[in-house]
Design a protein around this nucleic acid. Structure first.
Lengths: 349, 349
DNA sequence: ATGAAAGCGCTAACAC
DNA sequence: GTGTTAGCGCTTTCAT
C-alpha cells in the first residue's frame, strides 16, 4: 500500500480512502491511486483491514455434510448473495458428534467470520447458548430457534399435505421412514415431519401406530433395505410409505423394485425435498425450496452484519408444495399396468 | 491475549508459544496459560497471526457450481483433510463466464488463502498464467495442467472401458451425449472422454460418426429431451448412448422412459461418475472416485503449503472402474423382459 | 481534501 | 524457559 501511495504521489491514507470508495477524495487523486493500484496489481489485505475494523469479510457455514442435496442447494443459494455483498464463504462440516464437539471446542468462527449459518443441525440448548456468546450473529437454517434468526419451511404443514395426498388416494396404512443416519441431533425437521404425518392421519380418522414408524440408520442400501424389510414383515404391511427425505424415498423405490414389489401399484412412495433426481425417479414429493433457503439465510446474515438495528429474532418461513408424480397411486391398484418398480436388469457376459 | 497473559501471570510470548504448541514452554506455565485461555474462552485471531506469519490458515476452492454431485463430493473429501491440518475451507463459485471473469478480476484468493484448488474448470492459458502469479500454490482438480499440480482420473481410459463394454454387448451404433451446460470451458474432461469413446469405437472397427455426438445444452429436462430427440430422428438411431456424466445419463433414462422406449432393451444407457443416484437408476457407469480426488487434492495442497520442497508439478491420477448395472444390455434384446424404462405413472384424482 | 501517527492482535527475533 | 520489542498492512482519529 505504501508502494501504491508512493507511485500515486499521495499518502497511504488517501490510498486507503480511495480503495474503500470513500467520497472524500479528489477526482484527480482518485484517478492516480486507481492507476497505481492497477499497475502494481495491488489488492487490499483482508487480514490487515479486519484487524483494525473487526470485520472479517466472510461468513461461515456449519453443515453436517458437504455432499448432500440439501447442503449443496443451500450453498448454491448462498453463494451469489455473499458474492454480491463482497463476503467470502467459509465452510465447516461436522458429520459426527466428535467433529461437532471439536467445532464447538474451537469455535473457529469466533473471530473468523462476521456471521455463522448453522444448516440442518438440531443443536442442544447448550450448544445454542454457546453460539450466542460468539459475538457474531448466528442464523439457523432449517431449524427454528426461538428468539434467534431462523430460516425454514413449515415441515409440519408440508408433511401433512403429503400424507393427505396419500389419504386421498385411499391409503390408511401409511408408514413413516425416519432418517437416523449420522449421529443423533442431526435432523431437526424429523420430529416436525412426523408430527405432520400423525396429524394428517388423525384427521383421516386413523390412529398413528408406532410399528409404522421405522428408522433408517445404516448408511447406503442396507439401512433402507432393513427398514423396508421390517415394514413388509408386519402382519399388516403398509400400502404407502412416506420417507422423511427424498434420498431415502428414492432408495426405498430401488429396494422395492429389486424385491419385485411394484410402485405405486402395491406400495406408494412419497418423499420430502424435491431432490434433483426426484423427477427422474417419478417420485411424488413435498418440495422445499432449498436454494431459496440459502439465499434468504444469506440476506438475513447480511442484514444482521451491517444493519445494527436489524431484527435479531427474525424468522423466515418458506412454502412447501406437493408435487404429484408416478410413485404414488390409488391403494390396491395392483395389475393396473406397468409400474415404476418393475425392472429386469439386462444380462451381461 | 494480553488478558490471558495477565491471568496466567506470564508474558504474551509465553501465551503465544503455548497456544501454538511450541515445546519450549514449561509444563507449569503451559497449564496456567491453558486454564486462563479456557476461562476467558480465548481463541487466537487468525487475521492477526496471518498478518505477521503471511499464512492465512485457509485454502480456497473455485468450482463452477456448489450443488453438483462432483463439487459436493470433492468438498466432502477435502473437508476432513483440511480440518486435520487446521486449515479453513473458503469456497468460491463461478457458474458463468461473467462470474468467472469477476473472480479473476478480483483474485480474492490473492492474500486470502494459502492455496487455491480449481475444480473441473477448463481454464484458458491466460487464466492459468494469471493464477501462476498468485503467489500461492494452485492445484487443478479434474484437469491436467502440465507443469502444475493436478489431480484427476484417466478420462480416456475410463471412457474407453465403458464403450468397450457396450461393444462387447454387440453395440455398434453408440452415441455420445456431451455436456454443454454452463458456459464454454467448464468441462475439461469432455474432450478426453470423447477421445476414449472414439478410440474404443475404432478399436472395434467402427468409424466414429459426428452425427452420433450430440450436445446437451439447455438445462433441466429440455436439453436432454432435445438431444435424445435428435438421436431418435436419425435414419439409423443408436442402440446405445454414452453420456458424459451420470446426471445426463439419468435424465436420458427418464426421457426414454417417458417416450416408452425400453432401457436397455431398445437402447442401452451408459454414464460416467457413479453419482449417488446411479445405483438406484440401475445405471451402468464408469465410476470415478470424486471424494478421493478431493482428499488427494487436499493432501497435495497441504504438502505444497508447508513443505517448501514439495514437487510443484506433481500429478496424481486416480483409477476409474466400470460398474455394470441394468441400464446396459445386449443389442436388440427387445422383448427380453421388463425394463428399466417401463413406467406407467399412477393416476390420481 | 489530505497527511501523520497511533494502534488493531499477533509473532519473531533478540535478550536474558 | 521466558520477557521485551519491533513490526505485519491496514484504518482511523486528529491535525492541517
Amino acid at each position: 500500500m505504501a508502494d501504491v501511495a508512493e507511485r500515486a504521489g499521495v499518502s497511504v491514507s488517501t490510498v486507503s480512502r480511495t480503495l474503500r470508495g470513500l467520497a472524500t477524495v479528489s477526482p484527480e487523486a482518485k484517478r492516480r491511486v486507481e492507476d497505481a493500484a492497477r499497475e502494481l496489481s495491488f489488492v487490499i489485505s483482508r487480514q490487515a483491514s479486519s484487524l483494525v475494523t473487526g470485520k472479517t469479510g466472510s461468513v461461515a457455514v456449519l453443515a453436517p455434510t458437504l455432499n448432500s442435496w440439501f447442503t449443496g442447494s443451500v450453498l448454491a443459494g448462498l453463494g451469489p448473495v455473499l458474492r454480491t455483498a463482497g463476503l467470502d464463504l467459509l465452510v465447516y462440516s461436522a458429520s459426527d458428534l466428535a467433529e461437532r464437539a471439536e467445532f464447538f471446542e474451537q469455535l473457529p468462527a469466533r473471530r473468523n467470520a462476521d456471521a455463522l449459518l448453522v444448516v440442518s443441525f438440531d443443536l442442544t440448548a447448550e450448544e445454542s447458548a454457546r453460539l450466542d456468546g460468539l459475538g457474531v450473529p448466528v442464523v439457523y437454517v432449517s431449524q427454528r430457534s426461538s428468539g434467534r434468526p431462523s430460516v425454514y419451511v413449515d415441515d409440519v404443514a408440508g408433511a401433512r399435505a403429503g400424507v393427505r395426498h396419500l389419504v386421498n388416494l385411499g391409503h390408511r396404512r401409511i408408514a413413516f421412514l425416519r432418517s437416523r443416519r449420522g449421529a443423533a441431533g442431526f435432523t431437526f425437521s424429523s420430529r416436525r415431519r412426523i408430527d405432520g404425518y400423525r396429524e394428517a392421519l388423525r384427521e383421516a380418522g386413523v390412529e398413528p401406530s408406532d410399528e409404522l414408524v421405522v428408522d433408517v440408520s445404516a448408511p447406503g442400501r442396507r439401512g433402507t433395505e432393513e427398514a423396508i424389510g421390517t415394514l413388509l414383515g408386519l402382519r399388516e404391511p403398509p400400502t404407502a410409505v412416506f420417507a422423511e427425505v427424498d434420498q431415502i424415498a428414492i432408495e426405498a423405490i430401488g429396494v422395492l423394485r429389486s424385491a419385485h414389489i411394484p410402485v405405486p401399484d402395491r406400495i406408494s412412495v412419497l418423499g420430502f425435498d424435491d431432490h434433483d433426481m426426484a423427477q427422474w425417479m417419478e417420485l411424488t414429493t413435498v418440495a422445499q425450496p432449498a436454494v431459496e433457503l440459502g439465499r434468504v439465510a444469506g440476506e438475513l446474515a447480511r442484514a444482521l452484519i451491517d444493519d445494527p438495528n436489524a431484527d435479531p429474532t427474525a424468522h423466515r418461513e418458506l412454502p412447501t408444495s406437493l408435487i404429484p408424480r408416478g410413485s404414488t397411486g390409488p391403494v390396491g391398484s395392483v395389475g393396473a399396468g406397468e409400474s415404476v418398480g418393475s425392472v429386469e436388469p439386462g444380462s451381461e457376459g
